[in-house]
């Protein structure tokens, strides 16, 4: 997996969080951290609950055709972990 593929996936994860109708970053500092690939941010600190996870999955599916369950979001509980998981899924196809 190239780092470009990973970065592209990270952008998708961030887009999915920013579009989430239930939760989002609570400060400019968190937002900056979300957008900085060198840093990371957990879903827990973004306030994700079960509904937020469902909405996150739905966005990935409607925007990018990526199908995952809420359980898989729990299994990769931060932006970078999620991006790596999804990029791995893509590479394995």
């Amino acid at each position: 997996m190239t780092s470009a593929a990973l970065l592209a996936m990270r952008e998708r994860v961030v887009a999915a969080i920013l579009s989430n109708p239930v939760v989002g970053p609570d400060s400019a500092a968190t937002l900056a951290r979300m957008n900085d690939p060198v840093q990371d941010c957990t879903f827990e600190e973004l306030g994700f609950d079960s509904l937020a996870r469902m909405e996150f999955c739905i966005f990935l599916e409607t925007e990018f055709g990526i199908s995952i369950s809420s359980g898989e979001v729990e299994g990769s509980p931060s932006i970078n972990a999620m991006a790596a998981y999804l990029a791995g899924m893509n590479a394995g196809r």
Partner: peptide
């Protein structure tokens, strides 16, 4: 059903 799917994935 969503919880059931998650438990299968996990």
């Amino acid at each position: 059903p969503a919880q059931m799917q998650s438990l299968v994935d996990f």
